[in-house]
Amino acid sequence: MSEQSMRRPVRAVALGVGAVLIAFLVVLAVTHSGAKESAESNLLGKPAPVVEAELLGGGKFNLSYRKGSWVILNFFNSTCVPCVREHPELVKFAEAESAQDEPAEIYTVINDDSDTAVRTFFDKNGGDWPKVKDDNGTIAVAFGVAKVPETWIVDPNGFVRMRITGEISTDFLNETMSNFRLQASGVG
């Protein structure tokens, strides 16, 4: 057997290994990085999960009953630094929204926090919107919230329109809501 014919399988194996490595690199390149900062979610464009919970201070909250209004769910914990930092922005946004003909409804979803701590925080920092209790984490799991803060926007038809991970700003929320309203009115 000649040396040349001996080299053929070696070349074939080398080519095969090379092909597998290239395929592996392609897979790594196209696969989602898993970054948690991403605002992607399987729920976007789908009906919002069923949410039935108690409100802090009494009363019931049922997300499906909020159809007809834009709903903003802000997942919050009073010990989370970004939550505390974004809070003034949310208060400003709420003030701006109150001037709208049909203001968006803001709800804080309490994430792994005590009622007392949340009450104390809101008494001190403002924000008179309702606070939804999520003692077992059912709402967080339904929305796939692992870290706070997270903000979700649900449209008047009950469909999830946006997920914002991390801190939000008043300007971003104002602009986003303005765009959504334009789209809904058929102008955008």
Binding site: N111, D112, N136, G137, T138, A140, V141, A142, V145, A146, K147
Partner: peptide, 13 residues
């Protein structure tokens, strides 16, 4: 972790 606990609760539910 609290997120894991929430998921366990949801699985149990």
């Amino acid at each position: 972790a609290s997120s894991a606990e929430s998921i366990r609760n949801e699985i149990a539910r």
